[in-house]
Design a protein around this nucleic acid. Structure first.
Lengths: 314, 314
DNA sequence: CTGGGTTGTGCCATCGATGGCACGGCAGAG
DNA sequence: CTCTGCCGTGCCATCGATGGCACAACCCAG
């Protein structure tokens, strides 16, 4: 009935007594308005979707948590989906979300070409998180990976290190490539060895990072190691402990559990998942309010967390 | 038009040529059916909601990941929301999800009374995950916490330990209480000391667990420690390392990063978030297919993972 | 007694997809 | 020539909430 609708939407033309009676009935029947029908009528749905590699990953779970928090502040439900690093699956889940008419999308893209997404941008705003999508002109919220590893090198060099090794994961990933490039640049800028002997940039998991660290120690005698990813740190650090080589300085990219409880604590450049998530939601809501904004790349600042391992002298 | 609808729904009464032409037009206009309007019409929405304490928690992020995977197998989108241990917020997000007409709900409840949820069960199936909700008769998928810690004690006792300490978090939480009870029972069953001197069951974070462990070592000389939660293990283990007391046996409840790379590796009773998530989705879909199932408690088996720290002799 | 303000009510179109029903061609079989 | 598929098409109700529009009671002031 018309009056009920007035009560639901706080229309003024309802007497207090009637309003009260309607609300009583609502309670008695435990009536809850169907927000989907509502958004169908209104043509807008507040829901945002977030697509990541995997929720079961410390970085992405922090990211999702931050997104959920930021979204809840503007009363936006959050739909999650994961790609499992599979471009086909990514496309499938993105299309599913678009079919559901989410108001906007946050996407941590897989490595492949994303030009198929371009036409979707016309009606569904997309903000990329953490890494760019090849072939797609969209907002990107992430960190300056290149500057981050460069500052790790600078930090170690300021403690006198010259033989600084690098352990990173697959350079096929744009962010990994940028981190490696940052390391190389900073080394070169100081005239240090960048021949490649000190570089092990193909360690996609802790085990291979540990193995790479072992050969580095045996063959190259580095006095410091920059780890380009949390995944790598989880191989590098335990190996240094088991080999009793905690005298080797370490700066990791990406924080991890127990980094502060080990001895020495592991100095890291934190990968600020929460700041990225929050910023990405803000950018998305800004774009929702005004659709014709230019595609922007936003770099969230990173911070070096001194815990000891990065401040070891040569 | 009618024919288009036939094509969309694979109706047989369309000639192949026409079907092809319609599909061409669909592609040209990049038309995607609105699945919300669809579910409004159909009266059903496949989406399931999951409400946890926090996505940023290793256990819950694994849980959410497993749920998302299991749900995607039956083409169900997943809405997430977090309670942040706040009963009011929990209620708000649950009601939001119900308004959206999710087909079902997975809930890791906060501690308080949940009888307000009972009327909702009539139209929205709910499966509790990990822990019961006081005042609510609903399905529960979790582990047998009591048996798990009891088996930890048994395991340590089989290696000759008699002074087995317990470090756990807040016993206000039902699962923590059950774990402590399991420890007590197993100790009592073997005639071991359960006076309470060996028990520190009020450590809600790693720091307090570390402090508790320090006083235990100093005052009670335990030869083994059962840690009742991952949060506690992250305090207990680093303290044993920094005090050079890795001779003390440890069995933790809940796996954690680096547990297998430390020396010795930390023996844990796995808290199988993935199995709980998968099983919970199965139970929910079963209940969606048949609404009048009785409320069931399902215990997912736990496994002891031997890594060394639990197999140290006295 | 009348005009104006306040309220309750009914009717209906709209959002997008769906599907029942009926009808009009059109073809091949009998 | 007619009958029976087969197929394209138009019309309309439905899902639940919304809100414009009109209208009928009121009460109160002028």
């Amino acid at each position: 009935m018309r009056t009920a609708s007035r009560v639901l939407n706080d229309d003024a033309r309802v007497a207090d007594l009637t309003r009260q009676r309607v609300q009583d009935v609502i309670r008695d029947l435990s009536f809850t308005p169907d927000s989907m029908a509502r958004s169908l009528r209104a043509g807008t749905d507040a829901t945002i979707g977030i697509v990541v590699e995997s929720v079961d990953d410390p970085f992405f779970s922090k990211l999702v948590a931050a997104v959920e928090l930021a979204a809840s502040e503007s009363e936006r439900p959050v739909l999650i989906a994961s790609t499992r690093r599979d471009a086909d699956r990514e496309r499938a889940v993105v299309e599913q979300l678009v079919r559901r008419r989410v108001s906007g999308l946050l996407l941590a893209p897989t490595a492949g070409d994303h030009s198929w997404l371009q036409p979707i941008l016309a009606h569904t705003p997309v903000v990329l998180v953490d890494r760019p999508a090849p072939g797609l002109a969209a907002d990107l919220v992430g960190v300056d990976d290149r500057a981050a590893t460069a500052s790790a090198v600078d930090h170690l060099a300021s403690y006198g290190h010259r033989r600084i090794a690098y352990v990173g994961d697959d350079p096929g990933i744009p962010t990994s490539r940028a981190r490696l490039a940052g390391y190389r640049e900073a080394m070169a800028a100081r005239g240090l060895d960048v021949s490649g002997d000190l570089i092990r940039a193909d360690c996609p998991d802790p085990a291979s990072a540990a193995a790479a660290t072992a050969t580095l120690l045996a063959e190259q005698a580095p006095t410091a190691i920059v780890s380009g990813a949390t995944r790598c740190s989880l191989g590098v650090v335990p190996l240094l402990h088991s080999e009793k080589r905690t005298d080797v300085a370490v700066v990791g990219f990406g924080d991890f559990t127990m980094a502060d409880t080990l001895e020495p604590g592991i100095t890291v450049i934190d990968h600020p998942a929460d700041a990225i998530g929050t910023e990405a939601v803000h950018r998305l809501t800004a774009r929702l309010a005004q659709r014709d904004l230019p595609a922007l790349t936003i770099h969230v600042p990173v911070h070096l967390i001194r815990r000891g391992s990065g401040e070891l002298p040569v």
